[in-house]
Design a protein around this nucleic acid. Structure first.
Lengths: 218, 218
DNA sequence: ACCTGTATCAAACATTTGTTTTATTGACAA
DNA sequence: TTGTCAATAAAACAAATGTTTGATACAGGT
């Protein structure tokens, strides 16, 4: 166990810096965007040495990809996956439309609430949503690691809610349009606050938004 | 008229460079983002001298604001405002719900179609949508110059479609959620294409999307 | 005690980036 | 022709940025 201990101990302290850098990356990339965030911003936020980013992640671009993986792990545990986890996946195919709609509304409210609430979850969500629109490798990585699974569950629920088939493109686009509403309200927060005349997303505001999503079928 | 002519002629050629730079800015800011676009990228795209950006707009930041103003003008003529223009604004308040819904669907289809179709309009839309999420001065500028007017019309239509009051916050959020769907499908195009298994927004795809927006009331 | 390899640190490096400077052009008026 | 002034062009500048280098600390194994 000797060499394991050696590895363990050194990796433990190293893991702290790795973690600090990843958290800083998610925070700053989410707030200001990837290009606008400098390596010196990152190491200042994480309180580590300048060379640490290159040493541990091979560079700024490497950090970007590592941050997605890091986030994907967290996201599966604490993200909207949590809301989806309460749904019995095997039961979806036999759900009544009304029940599927209720599940969808619950998921929408919960995921938006988590994303909009201050305290870490919001910057994480903001980072993810920035990557979504970026295109390129990071978007593909995020899609397969995080988005794909949950999206398919949404599609199944929408299919039941609208009494249509899961394979229909219309069903899939409708699922996207549900996600769009939640994402936009977070990503375009500055504009939404202006349009609503709000100063911030208060609990009351979040409640109201949760009831305003369009999700009935036509 | 002598000094006017002098001004006119020189301003004419100068206006060409101004215009070329503005178009390049909208294109590149939309494609890559503001920070990721260098002044040298811009002058290369516009085929003008390096100093031209600073000479005409005072700097990269000045160009950003000027591009919004430039876009606001075009947008009022050729943007979604066109779709809204077909609606008799005075008639909205007495519209039947069904008629208001039809108007909304028409606006959604038309504006998405224009934004998704290649040929200039798409990069313009992408630029606008990037500014929306940016925050800060540019977002405020865009909100008051472009978004505000059209948003209020949407609110009025949603109010009629859902038979609720224009002053209700629920009505306003619902209007935002309509816009969200169209914006997201354009802005998150890389993700949407992955999720749908599409290569691009073909006319058929655009048609399908146009029918998939959620806008019935509940 | 000595060696080994990982991790951290300060300093420096090579580019890139936004901006400025200086010179030149070209059109129009006198 | 000559002078004037807005516009353009090429070169240079200073600051910022991602990355690399060489030295040092330090823990664990021999």
């Amino acid at each position: 166990m000797s060499e394991q201990n050696a590895a363990q101990i050194s990796e433990t302290t190293a893991e702290q810096t790795r973690h600090a850098i990843l958290e800083a990356a998610i925070k700053l990339f989410g707030e200001k965007g990837f290009e606008a965030t400098t390596v010196r911003d990152l190491i200042s936020e994480a309180d580590v040495n300048l060379a640490a980013v290159n040493y541990h992640f091979g560079g700024k671009d490497g950090l970007r990809l590592a941050a997605i993986d890091h986030l994907a792990t967290q996201f599966r545990k604490n993200g909207p996956g949590l809301a989806l986890a309460n749904i019995d996946r095997n039961a979806i195919s036999t759900m009544a439309p009304e029940e599927a709609r209720e599940s969808l509304r619950f998921i929408m409210k919960t995921s938006f609430q988590m994303a909009a609430t201050k305290g870490g979850a919001d910057t994480r969500a903001r980072y993810i949503q920035r990557e979504l629109i970026q295109g390129g490798e990071s978007t593909e990585r995020f899609f397969e690691k995080v988005f794909s699974l949950q999206f398919n569950l949404m599609v199944q629920l929408v299919a039941r809610a609208t009494e249509r088939d899961v394979d229909e493109e219309l069903t899939r686009v409708r699922a996207i349009n549900l996600i769009a509403q939640s994402v936009f309200l977070n990503l375009a927060r500055p504009l939404v606050l202006l349009a609503m005349g709000w100063d911030d997303y208060t609990p009351d505001n979040v409640d109201l938004v949760g009831d305003a999503f369009w999700l009935h079928h036509g």
